[in-house]
Design a protein around this nucleic acid. Structure first.
Length: 879
RNA sequence: GGACGCAUAGCUCAGUUGGUUAGAGCGCUGCCCUCACAUGGCAGAGGUCGCAGGUUCGAUUCCUGCUGCGUCCACCA
């Protein structure tokens, strides 16, 4: 195996494996092949605008681990990949692009603009898919879906029509969140609250009957006063009882408005009187409806004041704010300006301050959908992990509000509604169907125009788990692979996406779309900040793959995954080092194992002929198989990686391989070393697919796709407590001797003899058999044992367990230093023993503690005392 | 304003029903290029488990309060 280089080269290996996977298409899922059934997960579709960032890398690594594991377990495993058209986000990107050419979407026209978008999608849309590919994601790439593909769009239209039929979609005039820059409606989730150090302006509104009298109102948006149609007070507020029903004159516009009473008003806030602007504030809108107020829209959709703003017509909203304040001040009607921290809604795509705006939009009535989801959730569909998110999910379903689904943009699914010239709406699959409806209803063909708006991006994403499988057309894949198993996603989109998917799944398939939801943390830098391009703290996964390898990226990320993941570039060294360690251990085993030693199953090993170290490693291996599987099933991936790291590096490499170096000629030792390592490759494969598969090819001598090989059997008959105890003793004594050698700084060049004494006869036999192993491990040329304690004069002496060891080094030994060390150890141990003694003397403890705990404590105390007696002997023998 | 989470070694984190001497990796110190691996090996230093109470024979673990940090939600003008 001299052709295997001594350093693992991720680049060439990854290229090779990816090419093989492209050719063989091992991740392609076929319905009904395996008796174990289907295992499906759908990818949270990344935006077509996206390039791979660490969040994706984490999200997809988690999915890949489970997918590869389940595939090895023999399920028909489907990981469905795809991308989302991401309406506003993508449109913004292309709008920026055409802006460089001096164009706007209006100047290009709808058709041309959409052409540009599709063109953009064709050229850039698959970038992220290619990048996921590089990460090692074992998706069924041939099934890659896009939310605007025609079959998918059909599903979107079908859902709209069906929900409309069920009375769950309606059109209404409401205050919605309006982004004046994107010029579209936003859902509540798309309008993010952000704290702003705002101001609160206190304004005087004079009475009509006596202009010297006035009411003071407070507002954070003074320009909206131009649209005021009332002032509201709390009916129980004595200060204002007499004023209810009186008429005020709205300054600057000289409109007469009434003082009304409404329970909504909080008496303790500000002056206790609220200006009411029904067309520009959601609360005021509600009051406006309750009191039949006039709705005066004072703004154009782009945030510029309109004719209703009188003297302020044509001003931008923020300019208008300044001018209004100035005008009020000049009129002596500005009482004061207070600093007032409050939250302002901003567009989640362009960060523009959102304007509450009155307009006609399409809505989904959510209550009936949410009720079904709530009911399902309460019977465990889906199970959400970590548990603490359950409440968040549930609360949102309980406090559900209707969903505004129309968007005044062009990139997206056109709303399947046609209008005649009188404004009658026909909800239909296409224009022809709309015409048919029209004819049925009015007996005549009319000129119809389609609604210019498109649907919210999430109105397509919420169908993802079944629309990707061909819904609304029944087919084998749909019935076999749906519902899916686990959804891995970020907690930020519980509302946007997760809850809505459950609702859609229940409504249209009668089943929750996934049985489990795993919400993972955010990838942050080491200072805990979110990674973002604008902060400049983002680590590019592609750069990490180029420098350390995809396996290193995956391994380090999983190893570091707690709640949130704090990552810096250096962390990937661990993954790189681990890959290299694995590579070299593989190389070493291959160098030393003869063809007869290539055992692939535990049955091929003659266990009766096995020495302790081999029995020991087989025992630990069997535990590792169990523990790893359990950790994966419980989504405790970092624990799984830790188990394997510890098993492979600390036990297999550091102890086992070192112990057997002297015995590699033994065929059963070869078989054990080979068997354990080849199966460790399998255990590690879900986490680090490239290096394990490459090594596996070297081990088996043929190119195999490792995720199609079967997961190792637990082989629990290999577990062997006697071997674990015996090797434990060997490790003890080796550690003890090494410790002493290190304390006295004995260099390997000064190879000398070393002896030890063993007090327990059964261990002595074992140690005698392994004397050469110990010699090798501690790198003394000559190690011997003595059946009894002898003369320790002029020797280094130490104690490890029931074994004393001494090193006859005369002049090298610093006796005083050693004495001090031993004395300290005695004191320490006596302290511990005394505290246990105290505990044992405590009547409460003996009365209430379980018997086994008491026995354990007593034994521990006795051990400590015995060990101290040994140490005393040791001490006295040091002269 | 509401809800939730976190606080353990210099750093990032484990610690699964309260009970050995609280662990790991990185970093740090010392010694080693030993024939798989210096992306390595061996040894070592480093922690009053955020603070204050409470429950208990016993608390890092359970309860309460406080402090600090974080996240989500929210129509207080």
């Amino acid at each position: 195996m001299s052709e295997i280089p001594s350093r693992y080269d991720p680049k060439s290996v990854e290229e090779k494996r990816l090419k093989l996977w492209d050719e063989k298409k091992p991740f392609h899922a076929v319905a009904g092949r395996s008796p174990k059934g289907a295992f499906t997960i759908v990818i949270p579709p990344p935006n077509v605008t996206g390039v791979l960032h660490m969040g994706h890398a984490l999200n997809n690594t988690l999915q890949d681990i489970l997918t590869r594991y389940k595939r090895m377990q023999g399920f028909d495993t489907l990981w469905m990949p795809g991308t989302d058209h991401a309406g506003i986000a993508t449109q913004n990107v292309v709008e920026k692009q055409i802006a460089k050419e001096g164009q706007t979407r209006e100047s290009l026209g709808r058709e041309k603009f959409l052409e540009r978008l599709w063109e953009w999608k064709r050229h850039n849309g698959d970038t992220i898919i290619n990048q996921l590919h590089k990460l090692g994601s074992s998706c069924d790439w041939d099934r890659t879906r896009f939310t605007m593909d025609e079959p998918y769009s059909e599903a979107v239209r079908e859902v709209f029509i069906e929900l409309h039929k069920r009375g769950l979609i309606y059109q209404g005039r409401y205050i919605i969140n309006w982004c004046p820059r994107c010029q579209t409606a936003l859902s509540d989730e798309e309008a993010e609250h952000k704290d702003a150090g705002g101001q609160l302006w206190h304004l005087k509104y004079p009475f009509k009957h006596d202009p010297s009298q006035f009411i003071v109102v407070a507002t954070t948006r003074p320009e909206t006063m131009l649209g005021d149609t009332a002032v509201a007070v709390n009916p129980a507020d004595e200060r204002y009882t007499d004023l209810i029903g009186k008429t005020l004159v709205l300054p600057l516009v000289n409109r007469e408005i009434k003082v009304i009473a409404d329970d909504h008003v909080d008496r303790s806030f500000g002056s206790g009187a609220v200006k009411v602007t029904p067309a520009h504030d959601p609360n005021d809108f509600a009051m406006g409806r309750r009191h039949n107020l006039e709705f005066i829209n004072i703004m154009h959709p782009n945030g510029v004041m309109n004719a209703n703003a009188g003297a302020f017509d044509g001003l931008d909203r923020f300019e208008a704010r300044k001018r209004v304040v100035k005008a009020m001040d000049e009129a002596g009607l500005l009482v004061k300006i207070e600093q007032h921290a409050h939250a302002v809604r901003r567009c989640y795509r362009c960060d523009t301050i959102v304007e509450p705006y009155l307009s006609r939009q399409w809505f989904v009535k959510m209550k009936p959908l949410a009720d079904k989801a709530l009911e399902a959730f309460r019977r465990g569909e889906p199970v959400i992990q970590p548990k603490r998110w359950e409440k968040v999910y549930e609360n949102w379903l309980v406090d559900i509000r209707d969903w505004c689904i129309s968007r005044q943009i062009w990139w997206g699914h056109r709303i399947p509604v046609w209008y005649d010239e009188e404004g009658n709406a026909f909800v239909a699959r296409n224009e022809q169907e709309a015409q048919e409806q029209c004819q049925r209803q009015f007996g005549t063909i009319k000129k119809l125009t389609q609604d210019p708006d498109v649907l919210d991006t999430w109105f397509s994403s919420w169908l993802w788990p079944f629309a990707t499988l061909g819904w609304p057309h029944e087919n084998k894949d749909l019935s076999y692979f749906y519902p899916t198993h686990t959804l891995f996603t970020a907690p930020e989109i519980i509302f946007f996406w997760v809850a809505r998917m459950t609702m859609a799944g229940l409504e249209f398939r009668g089943q929750a779309p996934f049985s489990n939801v795993v919400l993972h943390g955010t990838v942050r830098d080491t200072q805990g900040r979110k990674m973002s391009k604008s902060l400049g703290n983002a680590i590019d996964p592609l750069e990490i793959i180029a420098e350390f390898g995809a396996d290193a990226l995956r391994f380090s990320m999983i190893l570091n995954s707690g709640q949130d993941i704090y990552i810096s570039k250096e962390k990937f060294e661990i993954g790189r080092n681990f890959s290299n360690k694995l590579w070299n251990a593989g190389r070493f085993v291959l160098m030393n194992v003869t063809p007869e030693g290539r055992a692939s199953s535990a049955q091929e090993i003659d266990r009766a002929a096995l020495d302790m170290p081999s029995r020991w490693i087989l025992s630990l291996y069997s535990r590792a198989v169990q523990d790893t599987a359990r950790a994966i099933e419980q989504y405790r991936y970092s624990e799984a990686v830790n188990i394997l790291y510890e098993f492979f590096w600390s036990n297999y490499c550091d102890w086992y391989l070192e112990m057997i170096k002297a015995r590699f000629s033994d065929i059963n030792t070869q078989k054990t070393a080979f068997f354990v390592l080849i199966n460790t490759l399998k255990l590690l494969h879900p986490f680090i697919p490239f290096v394990t598969e490459e090594l596996y090819a070297h081990f088996t001598g043929e190119e195999k796709v490792l995720t199609l090989e079967s997961w190792p059997a637990e082989d629990s008959f290999l577990q062997d407590t006697a071997a674990e105890a015996a090797v434990g003793a060997l490790i003890d004594i080796t550690g003890g001797i090494r410790n002493i050698r290190s304390q006295w700084n004995i260099r390997p060049a000064d190879l000398v003899a070393c002896s030890f004494v063993c007090a327990s006869p059964e261990r002595l036999d074992f140690l005698r058999e392994n004397i050469e192993v110990i010699g090798k491990l501690v790198r003394f040329s000559e190690v011997s044992y003595q059946p009894q304690a002898g003369n320790f004069r002029n020797c280094a002496v130490g104690v490890a367990g029931d074994i004393k060891y001494f090193i006859p080094l005369g002049e090298l030994i610093d006796i005083e230093k050693e004495k001090k060390r031993v004395r300290e150890q005695i004191v320490q141990q006596e302290k511990t023993a005394a505290s246990i003694e105290g505990r044992l003397a405590n009547p409460g403890f003996t009365a209430k503690a379980p018997a086994e705990v008491i026995a354990k404590e007593r034994q521990r105390m006795q051990e400590l005392r015995e060990r101290n007696i040994q140490l005393e002997t040791t001490l006295s023998s040091l002269v």
